[in-house]
Design a binder for these strands. Structure first.
Lengths: 211, 211
DNA sequence: TTAAAAAAGGGGATTTTCCCCCTAAATTAA
DNA sequence: TTAATTTAGGGGGAAAATCCCCTTTTTTAA
């Protein structure tokens, strides 16, 4: 019997998908959690019954999919993570794969694909759809040196996603406008942006800011 | 036997939720469509078997939840629409309610609530959760004269959500920069915005632009 | 058919943003 | 403990964005 766990903040969906998984032969659902923290908590207190596969949502409150997957890859490498999300954004897909996810399913896939994906992840270690395959190969070859934003820069970006002027942002962060100017410059440079509008779009796409 | 239809572009979810609904006593699923257009198409070709309730997603390609609900309210007033979405945005909730939805469930509600909501919508005509109740009463009392944006303004807004300068937007729209300036002015005035950043956030919140 | 509104465009001033180049202190690594 | 990096900050200028007030043409409605 293969053991499956679900991590998704949308209870109705995880319950419903749990029902689907139970229909598959040789599958059982051992746990449903609403976020990564709750799931890890479950793992530490249950020595047996550890799942073989986790169906993991990406966007969740408290502890998101990326962070949780990183944790699992490190501390429970035998548990396979299969991402299951509505996010089609390439960067999101790549983040999950880089964090150790063995596959990435969109929520518009069919029931039969879900079963196939679960089986393949268990038996072969991974399952890539064509879309994900493409994204991975494209992005991987494109030797993109991963952009690393510093904490202070992230904070600046969040503020930049409001109607405040840079001067007002400086006040709010207790810094000189010129320092903010420096953050702006380095962020623009790192991300290849032309103006603040681009920054806002970037921040939203990458979940730094949620409108 | 109450007849339920599902409209959601995420096949896996609608299949799964369909399974849930089938578990409820006296309920059957008569149709699952991936968008409003497909659903309406189904309705016109099936004289019997018309559903009592439709579980409707909001964000869908081709024909979204708001548009579809408006159409149903007009042409099939006896079919009740129950929105089922991840969108928590107040404006989105209000748009659905105004379009004729009899209730609005978030995808993180429990199975039992779904059953209760379905029953109440069928028997009493509507089902409002506390959250929706609050949003409706707040927004309704707040005699907000609905902002009407013109087509040309919407087009401008979409362009303003890119890294183009206003001059470049003017070129793209075959207009003088000064005309664009006029659009900017009137849009800012109508929406009470301070700068372009605010406009971008507004556009994304209101699905004028999707990043 | 005539008045009113909407659409397109302009002048000119101020503020904000963007860009490049440069310095001092503090922290970190070798 | 020195060298390198990070963090914070500055000068000055050009380009955009913002604001206010005003004109002409086209559409729409009474």
């Amino acid at each position: 019997m293969y053991k499956v766990a679900l991590v998704d903040d949308h209870t109705l969906l995880s319950e419903a998908i749990g029902g689907l998984v139970r229909q598959f032969i040789n599958f059982e659902v051992v746990n449903i959690s609403v976020n990564g923290k709750e799931f890890i908590n479950y793992l530490e207190n249950a020595d047996s019954d550890k799942p073989d596969v986790v169906l993991m949502d990406v966007k969740m409150p408290v502890m998101g999919g990326v962070e949780t997957t990183k944790y699992l890859s490190k501390h429970y490498p035998r548990i396979k993570v299969l991402a299951l999300s509505v996010e089609e954004e390439e960067s999101v897909v790549m983040q999950m794969i880089r964090s150790g996810a063995k596959g990435y399913l969109l929520k518009d896939t069919r029931k039969s694909i879900l079963e196939q994906a679960l089986l393949e992840v268990i038996n072969y270690g991974f399952y890539y759809t064509n879309t994900v395959e493409r994204i991975v190969s494209q992005t991987e070859n494109l030797y993109e040196e991963e952009v690393v934003l510093k904490d202070r820069e992230i904070e600046f970006i969040k503020h930049a996603c409001t109607e405040m002027t840079y001067k007002q942002i400086a006040e709010k962060m207790f810094l000189s406008p010129k320092t903010i100017e420096g953050y702006r410059e380095s962020v623009f440079q790192k991300l290849g942006l032309k103006n603040r509008t681009g920054l806002v779009i970037y921040a939203i796409k990458n979940n730094i800011f949620t409108p």
